[in-house]
Design a protein around this nucleic acid. Sequence first.
DNA 1: ATAGCCTTGAAA
DNA 2: TTTCAAGGCTAT
Length: 461
Amino acid sequence: YQYTYPFDADLDMCPVCGDTVSGYHYGLLTCESCKGFFKRTVQNNKSYTCSESQDCRIDKTQRKRCPFCRFQKCLRVGMRLEAVRADRMRGGRNRFGPMYKRHRALKQQKNALLQSHGLKAEYTPDLISPPTRTPFNFTNININTTPSDTITSDLHTQTHSGYSFYQNEPRHESPQYYHVSPLGALYSPVHAMAVIGDCSGIPGIPQAQCSGSFSAQGPALPHLLVEFLRCELDELQVRSKIIGRLEQMQGEGGSGGYGATHMYLMVDQMLFYIVEWARGSVFFKELKVSDQMKLLHHCWCELLVLDMVSRQLQHGRQGSLVLVTGQEVDLPALVSPAGPLLRTLVQKGQDLVESFRKLQVDRNEVVCFKFLILFNTDVKHVENQSFVENVKEQVHRALLEYTLCAYPQFLDKFDKLLLCWSDLCALSTLAEEYLCSKDICGEVPCNNLLNELLHAKHHSM
DNA sequence: ATAGCCTTGAAA
DNA sequence: TTTCAAGGCTAT
């Protein structure tokens, strides 16, 4: 099995059953059969029941099996009850026309953007081939979590209680549409999307066409991203381990303060878990240990900085710094007695957090970023360089694909993300400089990871 | 009941 | 005029 880039393939797949689409039907691109099914169901006020647990898989071969779940899925992916005409008038156009047009334009723009990044829909088959061990198997990935939604398929309850989609149009010739409860809109994927991205520009068009199927929780994630998310360490677990370790060390070492030494030891512990994360991660763990070390020597500080930044993004408030340990450090208090190096470090750090926040960088993007950083080697001498570069390319794609799908209105977000990355690199250089400086590592034992990494870096330069 | 193909007809 | 998403028809 090979990973296929799902962008174009899924574009003409029905979001309900995966069959080939025949055009826009009731709000989105679907196949002919689901169009018919939806029409019959709404027109005849059908109500179905599910003999299983209301989470049946709907695909081309099984779609006939459970009409209840099929209709649920129709609603979930965003098919519009309002588009079925109550008076059965034929022909003509409805209000969705401009929406379809807009959606088409958006799709085209997106493809253009993809091409401008040199990513074709066709996929080179053997791009991913891990060097020694068995290739990673993507077939086991199942991202279709089954939402427990409460949409009723009983149209009687929805039909007469709501408003008319067309109530402001008095013209008698125009078709009369079914009255639909606003409740229906609440369950549309568009509503779900609003949580993570701006989709105000395309009312009623779910992002299902971006990259295929659409779960109620959000867009389908690129397979790679799903895999990356699995590699994440549990933040709380890491936190408690680090706290434990720090307490232990401070018990031994005497001073229990929260000064530079404490920071140094904490950063050292963070690095330990960054290494642990990397060692357990897809692709990375396939590499020889010597290559692993080269990559980590190259990027540990960027990973460290990204970790700090993303934490501020999650829990942080302006004017304070949240550490892995959960402690909150008041920034003015930290900065006022500090040297110039720490001052600029804090300032630029704040700037970076701010630009991440403005960009609405989400967790998925951060996770992709970590891999982008991990595999971003311009160092030669990595033995399996082609593998590393292929992975890098894959991550690049996954991030681009995700960003385009999750934030379809925000077409240059990906480019801006990359700009942020270069800011992050600059910040990381500064951070490294600071960690080397006598400000912080003056009275710390030498046999630790941070020291070793700093040391190795200096030798390679 | 399903799903492929056909007919319609206002908007573009 | 052409488009193309509505509804309709009908073998399976």
